[in-house]
């Protein structure tokens, strides 16, 4: 564990490499392939987005990256380390679609959770910094139920960043928020990310959000879930709201939109999908 953190602080690359990953589930005796031969690469410190329709397996892929589930075939590595190793060492931060805060804990103690789980001393100074970074100063002693939806999601992001992870995984973190709040949160996420620059994987089904935030957008299709195209987004950072109105932005967004709505990507009409938001937990 010590060695891992020293390596990273010394600047050893932790590029994400996903090679030929397969994952299937048993559903009432039938085999459902959630992911088929998925491969992708992301250099250290890049922001990538996984974009696709409901049921294309993007959340399943994220759970594999987080080490919460293991693939049936293929490999996932962060510069030679497995997701499981990274997870156990606290090198991965995850924010789920739902903030999933412990309701009995204050905001400060919710953000302190990763330290306690890892059995490390709680870095109070860093927690104060994070609370300031996500704009929640003054709410340290509030409980989740007292906050708005957007505020709760910021707590979840602060918690994901608590252990200074090399990898930040975001599973539609703003999916439950309204459009206006969502845009604000995207701007804030960009600001936070520019501050810390972890390798980030964002799962989303919003084209605009993916193009606005990511360096590279991986467009996925379903049955089985796979990467159908990789789209590079060239815009400089920081990106502002006005970028959304430029023809260059629209060109990329429209291109992705064409990919999603052309016949090449089926499954927009399929309803049954076990592996999306409710990816199976491995507990008995």
């Amino acid at each position: 564990m010590m060695a891992a953190s020293m390596e990273t602080s010394a600047g050893v690359t932790r590029a994400l490499s996903v090679a030929h990953v397969d994952r299937h589930f048993e559903l009432k005796g039938d085999r459902v392939q959630a992911l088929g031969d998925v491969s992708l690469e992301a250099p250290v410190g890049t922001f990538i987005a996984l974009l696709g329709p409901s049921g294309c397996g993007k959340s399943t892929l994220l759970r594999l990256l987080a080490g919460l589930d293991s693939p049936d075939g293929g490999s996932i590595e962060f510069g030679g380390a497995s997701p499981e190793t990274m997870r156990r060492a606290g090198r991965i931060g995850v924010a789920f679609q739902d903030p999933a805060l412990l309701p009995w804990r204050t905001i400060r103690r919710n953000i302190a959770l990763p330290y306690q789980v890892l059995g490390r001393p709680v870095d109070t100074a860093r927690i104060e910094d994070l609370i300031r970074l996500v704009g929640l100063s003054g709410f340290e002693e509030a409980r989740p139920a007292q906050l708005s939806g957007g505020m709760r999601q910021r707590v979840a992001i602060a918690r994901a960043l608590a252990t200074e992870p090399d990898v930040l995984l975001l599973d539609e973190p703003f999916g439950a928020l309204d459009e206006i709040l969502r845009r604000q949160m995207n701007l804030e996420l960009q600001r936070i990310w520019l501050d810390l620059s972890p390798t980030t994987v964002l799962v989303t089904h919003a084209i605009e959000e993916a193009v606005f935030l990511a360096d590279v957008v991986f467009v996925m299709s379903a049955r089985p879930g796979r990467i159908s195209e990789m789209v590079t987004v060239p815009f400089e950072r920081p990106r502002s709201q006005s970028l959304l109105r430029t023809p260059e932005f629209h060109a990329i967004a429209d291109h992705i939109s064409d990919l999603l709505f052309s016949g090449s990507i089926p499954a927009l009409t399929t309803a049954l999908e076990p592996a999306e938001t409710s990816a199976p937990t491995s507990q008995p």
Binding site: A66, A89, G90, F96, L102, V117, L118, R159, Q283
Partner: peptide
Amino acid sequence: DARLPDVVRACGGNDASVMRWVRLR
């Protein structure tokens, strides 16, 4: 709450940490 064990695991925890930080309380 099914989401909480995932949070603890994502923070680097195992079954014992889920028991300690989520289930008991």
